[in-house]
Amino acid sequence: MIRYVSGRLTQSLLVMFIVAAVAFALFGFVGDPIRQMITEDASQAEIDRLREIMGLNDSVPVQFWRYISGAVQGDFGVSYHHKRPVGTLIAERLPATFELAGLSVLLSVVIGIPLGVYTGLHRHGRLARGLMAASLVGVSIPTFLLGILLIYLFSVILGWLPSFGRGETVAVLGGFWTTGFLTTSGLRSLILPSITLALFQTTMVMRLVRAEMLDVMRADYIKFARARGLGTRTVHFRHALKNTLMPVVTVIGLQLGSVIAFAIITESVFQWPGMGRLFLQSIQQVDIPVMSAYLIMIAFFFVVINLITDLAYYSIDPRLRAGALKGNAHA
């Protein structure tokens, strides 16, 4: 088990290194950071001087080496635009993104799984068919459009919910984490963005659970369970649902990663002060230290989430536990 985890972590370092290298190579095409720092009427001498002191005249491998050796020591440099350490900038925005992403995934699980079970069990029912049709809209409507529509309906026309921002936040855990869950305005502000971000996941979880349920319900052991005279409820939830959860957990895990990584659009529409917006801005401003750090961090999240997902298998699927005991970790 420990060997398994440490092996995966070593792999993850390699993945992050490659991501950083690819990202760095791409930055040559984003544009010139100097142009974003100075006014149009700055002199050529000024531009040259800045290039020199920022080390932009060095070759890309040299710049990359400098960046990586800093990053290994936990120093991701100072943002060109914000003129503050990148680590601090990201740490400040982490809570906003995590709360939004966490709530969205929670919503998609809490709503998606029951709906999936329902539509799976009553697949010819009218309601189930209606839900399936509605879910098509869910998977196909672009996040951006959904966000704007919700803002228009609930903020502009009805005036019920705020159209932007995080509302009042409270610092907890010694000021390290800011949360919007403890104030009315913070909770109100969470509603529209989390729905926007959750809709796609919810419909996906629902469709996935439904498909798995349909599959499992045809299996022999369900018939045997019925034959044994077990109650419908026990059959459905103890035997059927539990066996559908394997792929669902995998997908939810991966989705959590992508929800964090791709909350960018939702954050941008709702002016949500999270990491996604920071990243989007940094692209516009050619803020290379921020872009690199963000990409490395997202790579790290994916690796860790995959690891956790794999570990979750262990607890759900007894066959894997048996394999691990025999030292056959990679089975």
Binding site: I148, I151, S155, S163, F164, F270, Q271, L280, Q281
Partner: peptide, 9 residues
Amino acid sequence: TQDGTRVAA
């Protein structure tokens, strides 16, 4: 940042 959101606000 978003024009649409700013107008809506």
